[in-house]
């Protein structure tokens, strides 16, 4: 499990809890808009060593079929993954 995007955004007074208690992992907005550069993975070069997965501050890199996949909804484009990959399998490309 990880926190995931919900359709319902609590707005009205009755939807907002009276006490400071609410469901854990409740997301209503993405972070994709923060990104100027986008990490792209060259699957042919990736050996699935998981160095990038470990180092991502946002936890948006997941294991996939012995390699990795990035959740672009929440990647901020910090570039740490690209620097960590010693095989050059991740490149940072400008967002258009």
């Amino acid at each position: 499990m990880k926190p995931y995007l919900r359709e319902k955004v609590p707005k009205t007074l009755s939807e907002i809890p009276e006490y400071t208690v609410f469901e854990a992992g409740y997301l209503v907005s993405k972070n994709a808009g923060w990104r100027n550069v986008r990490p792209t993975v060259d699957k042919a070069k990736c050996v699935g060593c998981l160095k990038c997965y470990l180092c991502c501050p946002d936890g948006v890199i997941a294991k996939q079929d012995g390699k990795i996949a990035i959740d672009y909804d929440f990647c901020k484009g910090c570039g740490i993954c690209a620097k960590t990959c010693k095989l050059g399998a991740i490149e940072m490309e400008a967002e258009i």
């Binding site: 997965y53 946002d58 936890g59 948006v60 294991k63 929440f74």
Partner: peptide, 26 residues
């Protein structure tokens, strides 16, 4: 990294890009 819990418990947060603190917490 291979045996680490695959779940993410700190996700979608609003820390600056590249924040070391959020990496430690995660």
């Amino acid at each position: 990294a291979k045996t680490l819990d695959e779940n993410e418990y700190f996700y979608g947060h609003k820390a600056c890009a590249g924040c070391g603190g959020s990496l430690a917490v995660r």
